[in-house]
Design a protein around this nucleic acid. Sequence first.
DNA 1: CGCATACGCGCC
DNA 2: AAACGGCGCGTTTGCG
Length: 424
Amino acid sequence: MEEDIKREDLDYVYREIELPLIPIIARMEKVGIKIDKEYLSNLSKEYHSDLEKIEKEIWKYGGREFNINSPKQLAEILFDEIKIGEVDGKSLGIKMKKTSGGARSTKESELEKLRSLHPIIDKILEHRELQKLLSTYIDTIPNSIGVDGRLHASFLQYGTTTGRFSSNNPNLQNIPTKTERGKRIRNAFIAEDGYVLASLALLSQDSYFIKTFQDRRDIHSAVAMKVFNVAEEDVTADMRRRAKVINFGILYGMGVTALSQNLGSNRKDAQIFYDNYFKQFPTIAHYLESIKTFAREHKYTRTLFGRKRYFPSINSPLPFMRAMAERMATNAPIQGTATADIIKIGMNKVEVELEKEGMLESVRMVLQVHDELVYEIRQKDLEKAKRIIENGMINAIPSEFIKDMTPVPLEVSMGFGKNWGELK
DNA sequence: CGCATACGCGCC
DNA sequence: AAACGGCGCGTTTGCG
């Protein structure tokens, strides 16, 4: 494949990023991460007890016992037996989506529409949450623990089209963070005695954006100020949340319909947000357009460091195929630069420095979650380790790749603690 | 019985 | 009717 790599100009990505990373990932997999089995066992008991209570309530509301985990049976109960969404046989006209297979969807965003009509809905959603946490994490992770008491997942360097890692057996890149019940699972990921866990996260990167970063202000709040036309002190938590949706969604090609659903607003308002966004950030609109133009001509895109992804259907006569390819083409260099190239280079740099200092035993990388690295560090080496890790990541971008660009500091944040759930 | 698919949902 | 990007995996269901 040497010739292919040369012909495709992938030399830097291959030799400077991916190759040196192989033994580093091998070591991370071999080291694994310590799990508090007893903590998970206690959590399991608590959540199973909650689950059973909720199950009985759902059956009571439903009028009979049925398998709540079956979307098919659930739809029968909700729509054929309780007839939620109808009054005296007349439909209330709530538009419920169908699944790709034509069945009545029971996914969360659909059930939300029925929330105020029947108390069973809240119970079903709570049941779903508990069932998910138990079956995917709490009752399953312990089965993967090795004789050394540690979990050795796989991290696949070739696992994605954008250059990110993927993780499996088990997947340690989707451990819950969102809900209170979910967060508690992270407490089960612990440090060895005499060690602490440290997490390093990359903070995200137009002139307004760059200025915001240089001033070390919050990017989503800054965008909220612009799109809602308010002063910094008048940005509410809800405005910030909406701005964040806009930031990520629009960047990845979200349409006005999806935007309105995400914001919980009507289409007209969503269209106003959408137009206002690109009016306020014309350089972003221009950047996204230039990626598409390049992709249409060359059938591929590249990240900042040259990682390549092909889009054979970018000029398809089918509008949907074409639009899909355009979204993937604009996403690939953004996602790939930030959460593949940069963090991979940083991982290499940190490891080189640790090896130089003879610290590979006392500082071990244990997890990678796209923009986050988790290290297990011997307590007494913490200060020095912190400097090395932070420096390696902050200096990840070699200057020759950004010589024509406005300098933007690569910001990181670090937290420390005895488990993954409470890193401060 | 094993396998593939549909559905749903966890993360960044 | 009309799809923001990238993943892995659990349970259910139907098929060979």
